[in-house]
Design a protein around this nucleic acid. Structure first.
Lengths: 146, 146
DNA sequence: ATAAATGCAAACCCTTTGCGCTCAT
DNA sequence: ATGAGCGCAAAGGGTTTGCATTTAT
C-alpha cells in the first residue's frame, strides 16, 4: 500500500518478471536494508513489523526463491540455521567472532588466487568456496571454551 | 567378542579412561578405518555391519563424545548433515567435487598464514576456520548447474 | 479468469533426550 | 553393586510442503 521507492531487490525481481506480491516486496525491502546476515526468523520478524500478514512459510519460500535467482546468498555459520545477505557486488568472506556472533566481512585477493591455483593443480575448476575465520577478541584470551 | 587389535581411536579412549563398551569399540574401529568423511548414518551402517545391536542414538551420542574429546572432527559440507573424520595429525582443508561428492584434502601454508594475518589485522585471534573449495572437473565444463 | 503465491498446520530430516534396562568397572 | 551407557521412541529445531484460499497479472 505504502508507495515507498522500490528497493534494489524489488527492482531486480521486477526486471526478472517475478510476480510481486506485497509479501515479496516487503521481504525484498527488508533484505535490501539489512546490513547484517539475518536468519529466516529475523527476516520474518522485520517483515512482520512492516506488515503482520506474512507467514514464516512465505519467508522460507521467498528466501529459497531469491537464493535460486542469485538475489541473496545463503550462509551457514555453524549455528544450525541459514543466514542471508543480499548477493554482494564484490565477493567477500567472513570473520565470525565466536563470542559475540558478530560477523565481519573481508576480502583477500591473495587467498582468492591461491584457491584457484589449488583447484587447478588438482585438475578442477573452482566454482565456489567457503572461507570463514572463527575468532576471539585479542584482549580476551582465556575466558571461553573451544 | 572378537579380539582384534585395538584401533587407534580405541587406544586414545582407553588412555582417557573412557568406559569402553562394545559399541564404542566398534564405532572407534569404524572411524579409525574410514578414509572418507562419513555421516552419522553411514557410521551407523558400518558399525551395525560389525554388530547389529547398536542404535543410531548411540552413534550420535558417541560422535558428540568423540568430537568433544577432540578425537574426531565434525564438518558440514553443505548437504545438511554432519560428516566426520578422525582428527587429522596435520591440519588440512577440503576440496569438494560438487558433481561426484568426492572430497579431497589439501593444505596450503600460505593461506594459513594469511588467515592469521587477517584475524590479527582486525584485532582478533584466530581460533578456527573453515575453508572449502567447491569444484568441477576441468574436463566437464558445462553439463551441470551452479 | 487463471496460474501462481500465501497461510496454516502437518510433515520432514537430522539430531537430541527421557526413561527403564544393561553392562563395564 | 552401581553409575555410566544403551535402545527405544518421543521430542526438538529448522525447513519444507499439501491443500484450500487469496492475489497479481
Amino acid at each position: 500500500m505504502a508507495t515507498r521507492p522500490m528497493s534494489h531487490i524489488e527492482q531486480v525481481c521486477a526486471d526478472k518478471g517475478m510476480k510481486m506480491t506485497e509479501q515479496r516486496r516487503i521481504i525484498a525491502h527488508v533484505l535490501s536494508e539489512a546490513h547484517d546476515h539475518p536468519d529466516v526468523e529475523e527476516v520474518h520478524r522485520r517483515s512482520a513489523a512492516e506488515d503482520p500478514r506474512i507467514s514464516i512459510a512465505t519467508v522460507y519460500r521467498t528466501m529459497r526463491l531469491f537464493e535460486e535467482a542469485g538475489i541473496v546468498k545463503r550462509h551457514e555459520f555453524g549455528d544450525g540455521r541459514a543466514r542471508y545477505e543480499e548477493t554482494p557486488a564484490t565477493h567477500h568472506d567472513h570473520l565470525i567472532d565466536v563470542r559475540s556472533g558478530k560477523v565481519i566481512e573481508f576480502h583477500n585477493e591473495e587467498i582468492e588466487r591461491i584457491q584457484q591455483e589449488i583447484a587447478q593443480a588438482h585438475g578442477y575448476k573452482l566454482v565456489g568456496h567457503r572461507l570463514e575465520l572463527y575468532v576471539l577478541p585479542l584482549d580476551a584470551g582465556k575466558a571461553t571454551e573451544e
